[in-house]
């Protein structure tokens, strides 16, 4: 009996189209379209999505230690509603102390970047090219001037430092640098 079914399966796996990612044209078309339609509908460019992702990582890292590489931000269709789906692989939850520290550090960082911006504005008048570019970026990116700069700093940290716990120290270093 098993001989029959084995033989049958062997013969027909030969004829069957292989369901690999490459062969499955339909799925490729569907996922490409999904992305394009979401961009058409929401006017969110890949650049803005990337920025959104960076800011979300910053926010969530205060409370949990997460796998930044595997964090996924996607759009899903539910009926005629578009939903933003965030999948966050959590490595471990932070304890109260760590969270408190992170919030304090965040507040400190915001205070400093605000001061930093003011400095930029005053120095702009002196006319250094680099500083002008920086302030240009800030004003086009977001109404809240502190946000884009904050994320770009955090991204740099994420790349240079693999360990989340060591991030705080490096954050502080980085802040000092920018000041």
């Amino acid at each position: 009996m098993s001989f029959f079914t084995d033989f049958y399966n062997k013969v027909f796996s030969f004829f069957k189209p292989q369901d690999t990612a490459e062969n499955n044209v339909k799925d490729v078309a569907r996922s490409r379209l999904k992305l394009v339609l979401m961009q058409d509908r929401t006017n969110l460019t890949p650049k803005i999505l990337e920025q959104m992702r960076g800011e979300l990582i910053d926010l969530l890292s205060k409370y949990v230690e997460l796998d930044k590489e595997l964090l996924e931000l996607n759009f899903e269709q539910e009926g005629d509603q578009v939903a933003l789906m965030l999948s966050i692989p959590v490595i471990r939850a932070k304890d109260e102390k760590e969270i408190e520290e992170a919030i304090k550090k965040d507040a400190l960082l915001k205070g400093i970047t605000l001061a930093d911006d003011e400095e930029d504005d005053t120095e702009e008048e002196t006319g250094t090219d680099e500083l002008q570019e920086e302030t240009d970026k800030d004003s086009e990116g977001n109404q809240d001037e502190t946000l884009p700069q904050e994320t770009s700093e955090a991204d740099e940290n994420g790349e240079s430092q693999a360990e989340d716990t060591e991030n705080k120290n490096s954050d502080e270093e980085n802040v000092q640098e920018t000041v």
Binding site: V25, K26, L33
Partner: peptide, 19 residues
């Protein structure tokens, strides 16, 4: 073509367009 996964199915299109 839908049977060989070379074309999107009716369900796929309806899901994408939500109509």
């Amino acid at each position: 073509l839908i049977a060989t996964n070379d074309m999107m199915s009716v369900e796929d299109v309806v899901e994408l367009l939500a109509c």
